[in-house]
């Protein structure tokens, strides 16, 4: 939009009027705020930013974001820990007198220190060829264990046989034993 000569004249006149008013209104020396007021404002400004001793390590606008991030991290940690599955109670025995190696160890460990030793021995003595239908871990087998004990009996390793018998009974308390191994 262009301004015509009339508008320009009017604008000039308006500016002249303003100048006349400015001159008429401004007394000797422009009015200024009192010095005490200046000091009060400057002190407030210094106090607001920590007496001006330097910058804060983090701008104020970031403090809120950092606090929020910290809360989120803590909340996520709690949620993740709650989501982890609780340990499944272990069965006393599995089908066909077979025990899962880890399950048996954990269960026996809860009962007593002695049982844990026995469990470890059972796990080490389990035949690698014997595997359950639904597990690839080696599991102890009562029959093979009995065969091993019979071999110990045959070789007259009485002390070791006694230990094995004790361990066997801990795991298979009701399993029938051949007459040679009966006490």
């Amino acid at each position: 939009m262009s301004t015509g000569p009339h508008d320009q004249k009017e604008a000039q006149r308006f500016e002249q009027d303003l100048d006349a008013l400015r001159q008429a209104l401004s007394g000797p020396g422009d009015v200024e705020p009192p010095e005490l007021l200046d000091r009060a404002v400057l002190n407030t400004a210094r106090r607001a930013v920590g007496t001006g001793r330097g910058r804060t390590w983090l701008p104020n606008r970031w403090l809120g974001a950092v606090a929020t991030a910290a809360v989120v991290v803590i909340a996520l940690t709690v949620v993740i820990q709650q989501d982890q599955p609780a340990p499944v109670p272990l069965p006393e025995e599995t089908n066909g007198f077979r025990l899962d190696q880890e399950s048996a160890s954990a269960q026996i460990a809860e009962k007593s220190e002695e049982s844990r030793k026995i469990s470890a021995r059972v796990a080490t003595q389990a035949a690698p060829k014997e595997k359950s239908a639904d597990s690839s871990d080696p599991v102890p087998n009562a029959e093979s264990w009995i065969n091993r004990m019979l071999q110990l009996k045959a070789s007259q390793q009485e002390e070791e046989l006694a230990n094995e018998l004790e361990a066997f009974r801990s795991v298979f308390p009701d399993h029938p034993l051949p007459p040679e191994l009966e006490p």
Binding site: V31, D38, L42, G50, G52, R55, T56
Partner: peptide, 22 residues
């Protein structure tokens, strides 16, 4: 000044104190 520079505020204040007061 928002970042803690009080000297910057003093400059700013000296520029605008009189007109704002008037």
């Amino acid at each position: 000044y928002a970042q803690g520079d009080t000297e910057a505020f003093e400059h700013l204040y000296s520029r605008h104190r009189a007109p704002l007061y008037r």
